[in-house]
């Protein structure tokens, strides 16, 4: 399966997302923000980073990049799209998913191995998980606080659009401990933690079994590949 990873000026985890796709058995395709060409990919990842230096608001300028016209179009037609960290912020800015992000409640950048609960195992990127499964994924951001108005929160909670919730500690003051959300259709998912950094033994979070051996993030990528095979 060909999975595109878009590089924006200031993208940082783009090559890591490509590696994760490869480790999951997919074929990563580098896409450029200034182009309108999706190069025939079957799924798209908007990677983490500080696109455009977070000027204006995190993700705001990137969401207006030429390629985003195509991403929005493809997403609305059902193509799986995953937004990680800065990519999550772009998805919100592009209105592909509800809500917005502000500065972390404690005002600092934070990096930690974060426990999450899978709240919706039926999205394109989560079918490999079981409903309610607890996973550990690295988190690292400064503007990770998910917010939305009451009505939106009620709606996404009710419609099962909350895909992931923080467990143990809420690291940034996100409403309802929300770590990730999806669109109504379930093909577009955005989350603050970085699944691509929990895909390779030796370079992931620590587990009770061994140092850096956590690979819970791999399931995001195998889920979308599996779904494409079944189709």
């Amino acid at each position: 399966m060909r999975i595109g990873v878009v590089t924006f000026p200031g993208s940082l985890d783009d090559r890591d997302a490509q590696r994760a796709v490869r480790l999951a058995g997919g074929e990563p395709v580098a896409l450029w923000h200034g182009s309108h060409d999706l190069d025939g990919v079957e799924a798209i990842i908007l990677p983490g980073g500080f696109s455009y230096g977070d000027y204006l608001r995190a993700g705001a300028i990137a969401s207006l990049s030429p390629i985003m016209t195509e991403v929005v179009d493809a997403a609305n037609k059902g193509m799986p799209v995953l937004g990680i960290c800065n990519g999550f912020q772009m998805l919100a800015e592009a209105r592909l998913i509800p809500g917005a992000h502000t500065r972390n409640a404690h005002q600092q950048f934070i990096r930690r191995d974060q426990r999450l609960r899978v709240e919706n195992a039926a999205t394109d990127w989560t079918t490999g998980f079981t409903q309610g499964q607890e996973i550990t994924i690295p988190l690292k951001n400064a503007d990770g606080r998910f917010i939305a108005d009451d009505e939106t929160i009620k709606r996404i909670e009710g419609e099962g659009q909350v895909a992931f919730r923080y467990v143990g500690v809420n690291p940034n003051g996100s409403f309802d401990d929300i770590a990730g959300v999806s669109n109504e259709r379930g093909n577009v998912v955005g989350l603050m933690p970085h699944p691509e950094h929990a895909t390779e033994p030796g370079f992931g979070p620590d587990t009770p079994a061994a140092m850096s051996s956590g690979v819970d993030g791999l399931t995001f990528f195998t889920s979308v590949i599996q779904k494409a095979l079944v189709k």
């Binding site: 940082l12 890591d16 600092q108 950048f109 990096r111 950094h197 390779e200 030796g202 370079f203």
Partner: peptide, 12 residues
């Protein structure tokens, strides 16, 4: 904790 250690995916 304020420093990214994961980025680039090669930190052993």
């Amino acid at each position: 904790n304020q420093y990214d250690t994961y980025v680039l995916g090669n930190t052993a």
